[in-house]
Write a protein that binds this DNA or RNA. Structure first.
Lengths: 146, 146
DNA sequence: CGCTGGTATTTAGCATTGCTAATGAGTTAC
DNA sequence: GTAACTCATTAGCAATGCTAAATACCAGCG
């Protein structure tokens, strides 16, 4: 396999990419639609939006959080009316957690807010730069999921 | 000014960019060289690396943290031998905080580790994809600093 | 069936890290 | 020279993560 990324130029690109992604990620994280939800709670709702529904244990693994922490997060989300808890069909030890319509609306609003913030920021780029980013977006997405 | 980013394609690109950056940022954040340092402590050291030295108040503003929190962070960093405290030349209320050589080494190691992690991830891309990212890196960096 | 071991969740208690309010020292403007 | 302001700190609180232990349940084997 050709060792694509170990020349000097590419090392610089990796470093530049790293710092840009970290900084932009931090700034995006601060754009929150609901101050009463912690980042982890938001993240759990996002996961539920992707997966439909899951047990607390599954959620804990996906969010890299310990099961007891997830228990509390789910309890808080339920108290806020953002998730529903139902008995697991096959195993009475487990529960099924799923999001409510209210959560759905909040997630959409949140995505929209962050997209708008980023789009607004991108107004500061010229046309060529924006073309470059548009081409890079799917690649970056692939990279993030590798 | 031409409204570059409000067509459908660009909206999709913004959304894709947003989610990729957030996910990649989260994953990068987990690549820590020293588990005993919190992300904020690392960030303070990074700021000191960029700025040379600063007062606790300046650091608090830059890190978007309240002054009392910065007092504790600086105290912890000092206890770990990563920063030095000196009296302010002009104002005896203030102190000057600067990093030690040990902090410098740690920062370099941390950058290297995250770069290596990202470079390793990028091995999963093909040549064209990597070219695209290399072109996008400086643009992304500009965007992050806008 | 009944026991033994394993898994899912929860409870209890603790550590970390942020905050606000109040204090003390030092500076600045009138 | 004093009143008002600023900087750093102390004290105490809230949020959010963790580990260890408890509870409830499932699965397999005699």
């Amino acid at each position: 396999m050709p060792d694509l990324i170990h020349d000097g130029d590419s090392a610089a690109a990796v470093s530049s990419l790293r710092s840009a992604v970290m900084l932009l990620g931090r700034r995006l994280k601060h754009q929150r639609v609901d101050e009463s939800l912690s980042p982890t709670e938001m993240s759990v709702l996002g996961t539920l939006a992707r997966c439909g529904s899951a047990t607390p244990g599954e959620l804990a693994r996906k969010e890299h959080v310990q099961p007891p922490s997830m228990t509390r997060i789910v309890a808080l989300l339920e108290a806020k009316g953002l998730v529903r808890l139902e008995p697991h069909p096959d195993d009475r030890r487990q529960k099924m957690v799923s999001r409510t319509e209210q959560a759905e609306a909040m997630l959409a609003e949140s995505r929209d807010k962050r997209n708008a913030w980023l789009a607004n920021l991108a107004e500061g780029l010229d046309e060529d730069e924006w073309d470059t980013l548009r081409a890079a977006a799917p690649v970056l997405e692939k990279l993030a999921h590798l």
